[in-house]
Structures are given as structure tokens and as C-alpha cells.
């Protein structure tokens, strides 16, 4: 009876009831840790023992000379990774999607093949590529040697980050490709046909019709790439270790956090790393919101 009565009122109250389990889990595993991380950053620590209230001291520590010397290059590398991902991975993803939209037979199989590497854990991919690119035993250099192009791809600071971008692309290119493919499938054929009837070439159709209609998909891909590039850890860790070898050329925020929290041996490691985590969260979250605003307005 009661149930029937409630249903009669529109059912809004009971539908909230179903959200409770998810809300509880979300609070326990996402909101609560985020909040404790925030509070941790305002205290000084002795190992895992909370010491005294430190105010903004931990944040001031982030800006101290020796720490800032690591923070800024790491942030710069994250930004370069994002730029590289946009230029190489997403451009290639778009090209694959456009090419595949003309393929009639085996489209599915090709899509699966392009997307396959992203099913593999980035750590595995990282170790695999370290072996492939090893200057002592790697098959890649063995192939390039006759051409005079053999070099320590991951061992030279000039080539290390571009190599990371290439490997990231190799792993993730299937993802923008799938998104763009889906968006392409949603564009009615009539637009292109009408344009062609009016005498537009295929380049004009692409530039004036297809690309503008892909803008929402591009915005999504850009935002996801940004979040991915800023939070990257596993692949760079597997390729260059926790210090971002060689000579810090592949150091990123994730590695810096890992080192600060778990590998520094500093008594106040928990305080400093919590402050860094809060900074990272605020920075990534804020930038994402901003990016979304700008892109959505344009789209």
C-alpha cells in the first residue's frame, strides 16, 4: 500500500534511496581519502605519527628552492606530454578514424587491432619497450644500426620524452580513434552528398563539414588526454624509474609524488606529499574545468 502510494506521488523519494549504496562507497573510498589528504597537508609528521599543526608550512616547502627545482620541470614534462599526445596520438587517431570510415571490409577487425594495446597494463608495455629499446640488446637498435640511426632512445635526455610520447601513442591511439569513429558515424551522409552536389571536393568536405561536426568529440578527447597526461605514472615509471631517468628528462608529477611520499626517507614525507597531492588535484581539476569551459563554448 505504502509503496503504491509513493509511486503515485512520482517516485522521486524512493529513487534517491537507490543511490545510497553508491554514495556510501563513493564517500568512503573517494571523498573521505580526499578530505583526509587535505587535512594531512596542514600538519607536520613524524613518520606516520601526526605531530603539530603546521599551517601552510608544507605548501611553503613545495615552493622552497630545492623542491621547486623538481616540481617545475616535472610539471613542464606533463605539459609536453599533453602537447605530444594532442599532436601525435590524437591526430593519428583522427586520421585512422577517417581512413577506417572508408573501409568496407574488415573495419571491425582493424579497429580491434588498433585498440588492442590499450588493454595491456602500461607497466607491462613500459618494460616491453625498455627491452625493445635497450642500447645493449634491443632489436630496435639492431635494425637501425645499418642505417646509422642506432641510439639510446630512452637513455638520452633529448630523445627520452619524445620516445615516451611515441610509446604512449602506440598504446592509446585506439582510444581517440574509437571516439572519432563513433562521432563520424553520427554525421548524416546527406551533408557530404549535398556538398558534393554543390561541387565541393573531398578536402573541402572534410574541412567545412566533417571537422566542424567533430568538434564535440575533439573537446572530449582533449579533456581526457589532458587528465591522462597530467596523471601519468605507470608507463614513465616502467621506462625511466622513479627518478625519471635519464637525468630527470622524463620526470613527471606522479613520479615526484611517489618519490616524495614513499622513497625520500624524510621524516615529514607524509606532510610534504599530501601538500603535493592537494596541489596536483587542485591544478588538474581547475585546469580541466577551465579547459571544458573554453572548449564547450567553441564547440
Amino acid at each position: 500500500m505504502a509503496l503504491g502510494a509513493r509511486r503515485g506521488q512520482g517516485g522521486n523519494g524512493s529513487s534517491y534511496l537507490f543511490l545510497i549504496p553508491a554514495l556510501l562507497l563513493y564517500s568512503a573510498f573517494v571523498v573521505y581519502p580526499l578530505f583526509t589528504g587535505l587535512t594531512y597537508s596542514f600538519f607536520s609528521w613524524k613518520g606516520t605519527l601526526r605531530d603539530s599543526f603546521a599551517g601552510l608550512d608544507n605548501y611553503a616547502g613545495l615552493l622552497s628552492g630545492s623542491f621547486l627545482d623538481q616540481l617545475l620541470p616535472a610539471l613542464g614534462h606533463n605539459a609536453l606530454l599533453f602537447a605530444g599526445t594532442m599532436l601525435v596520438q590524437n591526430t593519428l587517431g583522427l586520421a585512422f578514424a577517417l581512413a577506417l570510415s572508408r573501409v568496407r571490409r574488415g573495419k571491425r577487425a582493424l579497429q580491434t587491432m588498433f585498440a588492442l594495446p590499450y588493454l595491456v597494463n602500461p607497466l607491462v608495455i613500459g618494460y616491453l619497450w625498455t627491452l625493445l629499446l635497450s642500447p645493449a640488446f634491443g632489436p630496435v637498435n639492431a635494425l637501425l644500426k645499418p642505417l646509422g640511426l642506432a641510439m639510446p632512445w630512452l637513455g638520452d635526455p633529448d630523445t627520452a620524452l619524445p620516445t615516451v610520447i611515441v610509446i604512449t601513442t602506440w598504446q592509446w591511439v585506439g582510444f581517440p580513434m574509437l571516439l572519432f569513429s563513433a562521432a563520424l558515424g553520427g554525421i548524416p551522409q546527406e551533408y557530404a552528398e549535398a556538398a558534393r552536389t554543390d561541387g565541393a571536393g573531398s578536402w573541402q568536405v572534410l574541412r567545412r563539414i566533417t571537422l566542424p561536426l567533430l568538434k564535440p568529440a575533439m573537446a572530449t578527447v582533449t579533456i581526457l588526454s589532458f587528465i591522462g597526461s597530467m596523471g601519468t605514472f605507470a608507463l614513465v615509471y616502467a621506462l625511466g624509474g622513479s627518478n625519471g631517468a635519464p637525468a630527470g628528462a622524463t620526470d613527471v608529477l606522479g613520479l615526484l609524488f611517489y618519490r616524495t611520499a614513499f622513497a625520500s626517507g624524510d621524516v615529514n614525507a607524509l606532510g610534504t606529499s599530501s601538500a603535493l597531492a592537494v596541489f596536483m588535484f587542485t591544478f588538474i581539476f581547475g585546469s580541466t574545468l577551465l579547459l571544458e569551459r573554453v572548449l564547450r563554448r567553441k564547440a
Partner: peptide, 9 residues
């Protein structure tokens, strides 16, 4: 290229 050779290598 010793700087590019890993410990395991």
C-alpha cells in the same frame, strides 16, 4: 652510451 644502459642490461 653507458648513461642509457640499465642496471639489468
Amino acid at each position: 652510451n653507458a648513461a642509457g644502459v640499465s642496471y639489468t642490461d
